[in-house]
Design a protein around this nucleic acid. Structure first.
Lengths: 221, 221
DNA sequence: ACCGAACCGTAACGTACGGTACGATTGGTG
DNA sequence: CACCAATCGTACCGTACGTTACGGTTCGGT
């Protein structure tokens, strides 16, 4: 059981340990919840004794894996300088693309399934870790963009948190819950780009300070 | 193992069987995934032999429970006659309220957790059953409302499915994933009403055929 | 009253899996 | 080479749980 259940923590690992955690991720993706300590050890070609020495117990393995994956997802920050409407739109849209790519990736789906199941079992840091590194992390990274847009007179809103939640909803819609429940919707790169573009247009239509001008009210299919 | 994994199927149960499934639901809510056949039998005050005779195996119990819960959630249909903008807004908003109430209920959260976990374990009808009775069922019930609104000249959109997905996203935002991952956000009746109202305003702002007139572009907090 | 079916409560079985122990192997260091 | 620490592979243990079996009980039909 790791003592850290917050962000970061994933840098004090040896290369070998990271390889093991990558093996855990592959096992999660391929075998779902048939994730036993024995299967992990076999997949990672290490002994169970090593797993227990490094991570304490099964929960420690899961926790370390979630944090390891989270540390890999840190996307680049978006500059909030010299914003014009095109740059703002670009920032929002690339944000939406990145998020859709994450939640539709096999790894994220497998990880979230484990975390959701774990959250149902009483004491569950896993769910909170996933939330902290997923939903809340992107919120904290996007809110400065929103506030910069407001300061530049491009966006109009009162509460950045609520406004981010709206953007979150417009981008994600039903994608994550459908994927978690096993719907095999195909989120191709083209689909993701298309939906991110729509979501951004809709968001700007709702919160753009100026009338959206050329934004179509009826989405073109 | 039940042979029906579609909608309906929950009417051919005896009262005693429904009581047993209600006990399973309570067990799910209170004990999470600590749902063993023994605990179910004890809670339902029936024998395990009866559970196996009625439902086949553990999966059969879970499947029957999901279908039983689904059969209880059938909400009233919304009339699509004589729509004016107030009636349309009322329909959308009550839809949003009903959906937020469902996804924030303890029962739904527990059920969705089980279904998500199950979807990770290869063969999983559970996830599809939950999707069919949740996300897709409300989609099929709301789309006629949307199309009636368009026919009445109150809404403008091209694809009812995509438009429903937008409404779905505006209503649900980050609520379901946060609750599934164990975030104890408090969705009070007042909060639900407030968020449903916002979502409806935003949706009408995006897809209302006439300019939204009195709808505020900046959401009032 | 009698019978059989359904059901209850509980014991028992087999297996899967988390966790531990231990000998064998590897690799680095003097 | 000798030595030591870390790790591997595997066998083992204890337990939890799905599933089955069975004796006792309830209850509707005749």
């Amino acid at each position: 059981m790791q003592e850290v259940n917050d962000i970061d923590a994933g840098e004090t690992l040896t290369q070998r340990q990271r390889d093991v955690l990558d093996a855990v991720l592959r096992q999660m993706v391929e075998e779902g919840d048939r994730l036993t300590m024995t299967s992990v050890a076999r997949r990672a070609r290490c002994s169970k004794e090593t797993l227990y020495r490094w991570f304490g117990d099964r929960d420690g393995v899961l926790t370390a894996t979630v944090q390891w994956q989270a540390s890999k997802v840190r996307a680049g920050t978006y500059d909030s300088q010299h914003l014009d409407v095109a740059a703002l739109r670009e920032s929002l849209e690339s944000f939406a693309i990145a998020w859709l790519e994450v939640i539709s990736s096999e790894t994220s789906i497998a990880l979230n399934r484990v975390a959701v199941a774990h959250a149902g079992s009483g004491k569950s840091n896993l769910g909170r870790i996933v939330l902290a590194n997923g939903r809340f992390a992107i919120g904290e990274r996007l809110k400065p963009v929103l506030e910069a847009g407001r300061k530049a007179g491009l966006l109009a809103f009162e509460d950045a948190e609520e406004t981010f939640r709206t953007f979150f909803g417009l981008v994600g819609r039903d994608v994550q819950i459908r994927l978690l429940l096993g719907d095999d919707m195909k989120m191709t790169a083209a689909t993701i780009r298309q939906e991110a573009s729509w979501a951004t247009s809709q968001f700007l239509s709702l919160h753009g300070a100026k009338p959206p001008a050329t934004e179509p009210r009826i989405r073109a299919l």
